[in-house]
Amino acid sequence: MTQPETTARTKRRLLVLDDEPIVVKRLKPAFQKAGYDVEVFTDSAAALAAFEADPADIVITDLKMEGLDGIAFLDRVKAVSPEVGVIVITGFATLETAKESFHKGAFDFVAKPFKLADILDVVGRLESHLESRRHAR
């Protein structure tokens, strides 16, 4: 399980968006325990407003939602903050949706149901990726 270093710097900020409350309810304590500063939303408009006001480092978003769907949300957060790392989670995974997600700049695509340990690993990898990109600049 990934345990990010949090002592020498501020915690990574994570935004989780899924219109099913059970998903955000369970992800929040798991990521908090892993050392992240977590905000969760079940409504994409509210999530976007929060992100526009104060962008998170990492976004985990569902794909199929009422209103602004996951791909549109991905577009919008990338427009606000091109550096943000985005992970797409979905229960309706197809090759096309995966391709589209990657094309729009998603770091990874995870099909539901998934193991808690797996999503923590994906976020850990994304964090390493963001770090190495920062050092490269």
Binding site: E20, P113, A117
Partner: peptide
């Protein structure tokens, strides 16, 4: 397998 708490699932699943 969803009973064990290891997996994140939703109502759609």
């Amino acid at each position: 397998r969803m009973l064990g708490g290891e997996y994140i699932f939703d109502r759609a699943f």
